[in-house]
Design a protein around this nucleic acid. Structure first.
Lengths: 211, 211
DNA sequence: CTCAAGTTACTGACCGGTCAGTCAGTATCT
DNA sequence: AGATACTGACTGACCGGTCAGTAACTTGAG
């Protein structure tokens, strides 16, 4: 109400962002349940009490990490799909490569595995993630596949199923990387893995001949 | 040394099997870290102390679950691949459907998600699983793909990558089922999901025309 | 057959360590 | 002297693993 009366009260309000950054790192490293708030605080250079000045608790901290990190990227993806001009195969390629750039190979890359791991033990977080991320992500894939089918570029596969079938290898690449892949169990070069996947999938989707 | 002197000392030595069955259920339900040994014991109808008569601790219990449950199934799979006569596309279909029957839709279905979730926090268990399960499973897929390429049925894709690209949607189906899918976040009918996947993948692999 | 001694199978209270969340207190501004 | 930002010791609940004790069964001497 009268808050505007203070001309110079916040010097460096980057504090919450530092906290969510530290939390993201540790959630990805250890999982949600196994991350200690003491460690999050220590990594951000504050004490545990300070955490509670900015977030109501562990759950709220988690939601803030997702909201800040992933939601804006999905919005950018929607922009891409809306304005893209060109073949739908090319759009699918671009969307998946963009996703790999912005999420897969960034600090956010561990989030899908994190959610899969913790969903059953923290159903409220799962519901939040489903609504904030998964539903919106599927909507992007849906638009691309429908576009391709309408334009006669893709066969008339079952769209709702194909969304997940086609995105699955991309997710698995990431999930692997942040689970058994991190234990020296061998992995793949992301570039050639995505190439092989898109090669097989786009050829499998195509109506007539390739591009 | 003189143990053979007792003619009738064991009546029902099914105890360890009951314990691993209870452990499998709870590991799949809650994860490895979040499962309490008290609960495993209670579900098997014994006390926690009894668990330690049969297993050295939580880790050993876990390894016994995998060894008993999954390793024999992989051996059966190797038999199938060795003796199969017919098209390689058909073999791939059969192998994946068999896997879905014996593992995917059984009580063991939660194991892949379990391992992915816990691998980083329990690297020793991950190493065991990698050696006992993943390496052998990949070997099966490798043989099928090589067979198809050698017989001119499949294109000469990069086999090591294709193994994982093709198996990824099958794994994701299961992973989903035991993570967000268990929180009412929507899922797929396994039959039509596998159909869609095999349709796209086999068409993407094929050299000339379909079967 | 009887009963004590020995053996096996099992129990559950307990210990030591962990961690989310609390809050009385300190420090640094205005 | 009051407001704001932050601290870290503390609490209560939790759980893997331990172990002294109990119960049930077997053996064999009398």
């Amino acid at each position: 109400m009268e808050a505007l009366a203070h001309p110079r009260q916040r010097r460096k309000q980057a504090r919450p962002a530092e906290l969510t950054a530290a939390a993201l790192e540790l959630f990805v490293e250890k999982g949600f349940a196994a991350t200690r708030l003491d460690d999050v605080a220590a990594r951000a250079g504050v004490s545990k009490g300070t955490l509670y000045l900015y977030f109501d608790g562990k759950d709220a901290l988690f939601k803030a990490v997702i909201q800040e990190g992933i939601v804006p990227i999905l919005e950018a993806g929607a922009g891409l799909v809306d304005t893209f001009e060109g073949g739908s195969a090319e759009l699918l390629r671009t969307l998946i490569r963009e996703w790999w750039q912005r999420i897969g190979s960034s600090a956010l890359g561990g989030v899908p595995k994190l959610m899969i791991s913790e969903a059953r033990n923290f159903p409220e977080l799962a519901a939040y993630y489903n609504e904030a991320v998964i539903t919106r992500g599927r909507e992007l894939m849906r638009r691309v596949l429908r576009r391709g089918i309408e334009r006669g570029e893709f066969r008339a596969v079952d769209v709702e199923t194909a969304i997940d079938v086609i995105f699955a290898p991309v997710l698995m690449l990431l999930i692997w990387r942040y689970s058994l892949g991190a234990c020296g169990c061998g992995g793949h070069d992301p570039e050639s893995y995505l190439d092989t996947h898109l090669d097989i999938a786009l050829r499998g989707l195509a109506t007539g001949e390739a591009t």
